[in-house]
Amino acid sequence: MHPPDSEKPGLSRRGFLKGTGLSVAAVGLVKSATAAQEAPAAEVPTLSAAQTHEISFELNGQTTQAKVRTGHTLLETLRDQLDLTGTKLVCDQGSCGACTVHLDGKPVNSCLVFATDVAGRQITTIEGLAKNGNLHPVQAGFLHEDASQCGFCTPGMIMSCKALLDRNPSPTRDECKEAISGNICRCGTYFNIFRAVDHAATLMKGGR
């Protein structure tokens, strides 16, 4: 038996994040391993005001303020602080696409984006797609084609599909596969998703 081959360079990205970004957690982990044996608990770094940052950004069209801690990801900020829980945490390393949101109109894995890096920028999440109670055509396509089973990958999938249609209004099947190749659906709903994209493309061109 052998390790399976990998097509994606995720480990290095994860290493980068853990190595540089999550300094609070990382220092805590490293220090505490020895601290527990030799030093009292007072040595443990605790959260202080110095480690929080106030950021302002545009979230789903609204100017939004958030207090974020050093090393906080955009995903944590959205889910834990702003209670926008449509965006899901699954692999926590950029391998599955469940946390996909748009940063300045481009799809990103929000588990790999530092919250401090979005200051002054535009974020769109799944909650920001429907306008005035009307589903976005991609959402309507997913509904029409039953492109959810358990539904957990759905928000990330929809954000990847929307990004595809924003840059390419008439994608081929192969272009569609490529666009969601970073999104894993464990229930196996891919075909319905392909058809949902086709349906959405028609809707976006004014068809029915």
């Binding site: 889910r79 834990d80 209670d83 926008l84 829980t85 449509g86 965006t87 899901k88 945490l89 999440t125 799944i126 909650e127 797609l129 429907a130 589903l135 959402q139 997913f142 509904l143 029409h144 039953d146 959810s148 539904g151 957990f152 759905t154 928000p155 929809i158």
Partner: peptide, 22 residues
Amino acid sequence: AAPRADGVAKVTGRAKYTHDMN
């Protein structure tokens, strides 16, 4: 081929999973 009763909740991110409880 009826639409999923909870389809809108799933495509809008409104569906609350245990993971989402705050």
